[in-house]
Design a binder for these strands. Structure first.
Lengths: 106, 106
DNA sequence: TTAATACATGGCAATATTGCCAAATAACAA
DNA sequence: TTGTTATTTGGCAATATTGCCATGTATTAA
């Protein structure tokens, strides 16, 4: 049996795990200005179409992006603008690490 | 050869990946009020001591926590308070998903 | 209808993560 | 010294993730 607490952290982890890949971070970052078709996204990532498609599925299953079919194309867009905060925090962690390393060298 | 862009997203992904586990999210969340020893953290997580220790190493390598030895014990603490924003965004994504699902039922 | 384009999916091998046990280490007490 | 407690590390099997190839599907054009 699972506690309420465990379920809470597992739900959060599912979402964060969906973001825990360089290609998916790139996709999310570049989707901030607005919706884009898979063919554009494929160019950004530079991998096989099937690989990109699976990354997009991971993001969609986590609720981070949504998609809409327009003719032959499928357009993906962000569902929560707050993902930007992930980037900001990651940068903050990296800066702190860099600062501490400089201090160690002195 | 790796582009600047790729390196940027890989660095971010390393940090986010370190958070992408329910046990590590629990640890981070509970460390917000202040430093705690590994024996306390072990109680929270409820796993084997060695498992907890490895989770802490993952967080430390990512620069998310730091540790300090006090006698026999080791105290871990958060290095960047901004990790709270991860939780807030994850909640936001979950709320949006729940809202959309309710709309689909109508 | 056939062909072409844009995506998605199934399968699979390579790789990474996870969590336990057992053993090692460090600090302090007796 | 020996013992005890707190934590880390090595090893390893189970599991999950990743990315390519081949194939399937949907839409539109000819």
């Amino acid at each position: 049996m699972k506690t309420r607490q465990q379920a809470k952290y597992e739900a959060r982890a599912r979402i964060i795990k969906a973001l825990a890949h360089p290609a998916r971070l790139l996709i999310v970052d570049k989707l901030i200005p607005g919706p884009r078709c898979v063919c554009d996204i494929r160019q950004w990532v530079g991998s096989d179409m099937s690989t990109v498609s699976k990354h997009l599925l991971v993001l969609k299953n986590a609720g981070i992006v949504q998609c809409e079919k327009r003719g032959v194309q499928v357009f993906y867009s962000l569902r929560c603008p707050c993902v930007v905060s992930f980037f900001e925090c990651a940068e903050s962690v990296m800066k702190t690490t860099a600062k501490d390393q400089r201090r160690l060298l002195k």
